[in-house]
Design a protein around this nucleic acid. Structure first.
Lengths: 238, 238
DNA sequence: TTTGACAAGATGTATAGACAAGATGTATCA
DNA sequence: TGATACATCTTGTCTATACATCTTGTCAAA
């Protein structure tokens, strides 16, 4: 960890996860923490504000910071997370099957993206299984302008790992929509759906740090296996 | 606005919305902004970091802050927003029909909430319609320990407005889960569902600033009308 | 006993300054 | 011409300080 405040963030987060700071208890005060870590109060406050955003603590003015009971270890579709990371952090022991890799143009209208030009991309279709049961059908369109080629081995492992650690790309943010739709014949087949069963579709556009769009993703979920867990803070519309 | 940085936040956000700072352009630099608003750079940075969190801008080190094209004006289930606020900000002209107000205990198992004690609450069932079409069935359980009584008039208007502006409660955060389920007979009737049609269920637990739990909500959505829009920033799991 | 004033400790806001590190253009040198 | 070094702009990190505001407990006065 190269930053003081992110080192402190991870240290406190660890202590919360391992119940050294139990749920419902107060953290040491900001001045105490600043002495503990040998740093200024502002640096402590930066770490605490990250913990607040991520739902670890709740700050109460005049009193202190309470440890919250976050049990967001189910399926955090919120936030951007790669399937491999999810799989590892949840110990799900899932398998990924690569169905197809080929060159295609992005079907931009599906993603509600307005453009006049064609977007050449690498199309990757993958099926995610847990205990032999198909759960999710992932369809990725990775723009050729950013990533010229993707191998079968990379697709079978982790696209995000490849992008970030091999290519040095920094994935920054994404916009997502979630809808319920009637499945296509192909989707029905891959996900082993019953008659009349709908699917949950998550479509996202992913951007790099310099705001260049580089990936469109379509995730088709079996409705009985779909579970989205979210943590939200109140924000007034004004 | 009593804080400088939130005043600056709203001022810049307004200028982005009104295209004074167009999408794709750079904001003035932090030092320029601090001169512009007659404040310190740290205060500017606090405002900018709020804009970053809410998806208005993207900061690039060494270069500046780019205005993003946020079009999250569809149906932000992400974040906590009252139906009345949503309705107003989207100009949807929807109607709310109060179906039932009565005293009930919270069905805690539905919300995956572990407790041994019974939780007395006011149960409020409401149907949200747009152009006579039923869209959402909302079922709220508001704990008696926090809010002893809720009138029909309040339920027909806005619960959140009542809680925050009349009772002085500060709603702070919530945990949510989204699933797809088979509708009950009652749900099928109210939402005018076809045979075999599933529903999207959002269940949330809402907490006050002092971390006291005070509300359980169950929102039943018609699948063809459900559209969840989200903005997410990348966060490494480590 | 109840009320009120006050102090102490907590977080919230704001400032000024310093240095690190990334991006970019310019001037210089080979 | 082409490459390198540098200056200068940007944002990122960190410190030290001051005061405001909220919560709570204590102590004294009514």
């Amino acid at each position: 960890m190269r930053n003081k405040y992110s080192a402190i963030y991870h240290d406190i987060a660890d202590k919360i996860v391992h119940r050294i700071y139990p749920v419902g208890s107060y953290l040491p005060s900001e001045t105490q923490l600043s002495q503990l870590y040998g740093t200024s109060r502002e640096t402590i406050r930066k770490a605490l504000s990250e913990l607040l955003i991520n739902g670890f603590i709740q700050k109460i003015r005049g009193k202190g910071s309470i440890v919250l009971n976050l049990q967001r270890f189910n399926f955090p579709v919120s936030g951007i997370t790669s399937y491999k990371e999810l799989n590892r952090s949840l110990n799900m022991h899932s398998k990924t099957e690569v169905l197809c890799i080929e060159d295609r143009h992005v079907p931009v209208e599906k993603f509600d993206y307005q453009t006049t030009e064609a977007l050449p991309a690498t199309y990757v279709a993958r099926l995610r299984k847990i205990d032999q049961d198909p759960i999710v059908l992932d369809r990725d369109y990775i723009l050729k302008s950013v990533v010229p080629h993707i191998s079968h081995a990379v697709a079978a492992d982790s696209l995000y790992d490849y992008f970030e650690n091999k290519l040095g790309l920094t994935i920054s943010y994404a916009t997502k929509t979630i809808t319920v739709e009637h499945p296509s014949v192909e989707e029905k087949k891959w996900l082993a759906l019953n008659e009349y069963e709908d699917v949950v579709v998550i479509r996202s556009r992913t951007y790099l740090e310099d705001t260049t769009l580089f990936q469109f993703t379509e995730s088709i979920h079996r409705p009985d296996k779909f579970n989205f867990v979210d943590f939200a803070r109140r924000q007034k519309i004004s």
